[in-house]
Amino acid sequence: TFVALYDYESRTETDLSFKKGERLQIVNNTEGDWWLAHSLTTGQTGYIPSNYVAP
């Protein structure tokens, strides 16, 4: 799992909003700078900017 370093507000319907400190499970990280992730807090799935999270 990864932890959010910053808050992120989604800009498209495929993005995932999250708050700093939220735990995220990475589903697919082969898309370059945008990873498909599942929030362990909200249960939602969407794309996140990879530079906003850390292991």
Results as ranks from 00 to 15, higher is better:
residue 4 A to T: 06
residue 39 S to A: 04
residue 55 P to M: 11
residue 4 A to D: 00
residue 13 E to Y: 08
residue 21 G to E: 04
residue 16 L to I: 12
residue 37 A to I: 04
residue 53 V to R: 01
residue 36 L to D: 01
residue 4 A to H: 00
residue 49 P to W: 07
residue 46 G to V: 01
residue 7 D to E: 05
residue 17 S to E: 05
residue 2 F to D: 00
residue 15 D to T: 09
residue 17 S to V: 04
residue 18 F to E: 00
residue 43 G to F: 07
residue 33 D to T: 12
residue 49 P to I: 04
residue 35 W to G: 01
residue 29 N to I: 15
residue 53 V to I: 09
residue 3 V to H: 06
residue 6 Y to I: 07
residue 20 K to I: 07
residue 28 N to L: 10
residue 28 N to D: 15
residue 26 I to G: 02
residue 51 N to T: 12
residue 24 L to V: 05
residue 23 R to N: 13
residue 21 G to R: 01
residue 20 K to D: 03
residue 26 I to K: 06
residue 18 F to W: 01
residue 9 E to F: 12
residue 22 E to F: 01
residue 12 T to I: 10
residue 6 Y to N: 06
residue 35 W to E: 01
residue 43 G to W: 05
residue 15 D to E: 15
residue 11 R to T: 14
residue 39 S to Y: 01
residue 13 E to V: 09
residue 50 S to W: 09
residue 10 S to V: 04
residue 41 T to W: 12
residue 41 T to D: 15
residue 5 L to N: 03
residue 35 W to R: 02
residue 4 A to P: 01
residue 38 H to E: 11
residue 11 R to S: 13
residue 48 I to D: 00
residue 27 V to P: 05
residue 12 T to N: 15
residue 10 S to I: 04
residue 14 T to D: 12
residue 30 T to Y: 10
residue 42 T to I: 01
residue 42 T to Q: 04
residue 34 W to M: 14
residue 46 G to C: 01
residue 15 D to K: 08
residue 33 D to L: 12
residue 23 R to P: 11
residue 41 T to L: 14
residue 12 T to A: 13
residue 53 V to D: 02
residue 17 S to R: 05
residue 7 D to G: 05
residue 10 S to D: 03
residue 1 T to N: 09
residue 25 Q to I: 15
residue 38 H to M: 15
residue 31 E to F: 13
residue 48 I to M: 03
residue 48 I to G: 00
residue 35 W to H: 04
residue 11 R to Q: 14
residue 41 T to N: 10
residue 21 G to C: 06
residue 30 T to D: 13
residue 8 Y to F: 10
residue 13 E to G: 12
residue 54 A to L: 10
residue 52 Y to T: 06
residue 5 L to I: 10
residue 20 K to G: 04
residue 12 T to Y: 14
residue 48 I to C: 02
residue 28 N to C: 09
residue 40 L to R: 04
residue 40 L to P: 09
residue 17 S to T: 10
residue 38 H to K: 15
residue 44 Q to V: 07
residue 28 N to M: 11
residue 2 F to V: 12
residue 6 Y to D: 06
residue 53 V to A: 06
residue 10 S to P: 09
residue 7 D to P: 06
residue 23 R to Q: 15
residue 21 G to L: 02
residue 7 D to L: 02
residue 19 K to M: 09
residue 53 V to E: 02
residue 21 G to W: 05
residue 29 N to C: 10
residue 40 L to A: 07
residue 38 H to V: 15
residue 2 F to Y: 15
residue 4 A to I: 03
residue 13 E to C: 09
residue 16 L to Q: 03
residue 25 Q to A: 09
residue 18 F to T: 02
residue 25 Q to E: 15
residue 30 T to I: 10
residue 15 D to F: 12
residue 3 V to L: 09
residue 30 T to V: 11
residue 55 P to F: 10
residue 16 L to N: 02
residue 36 L to Q: 05
residue 3 V to S: 04
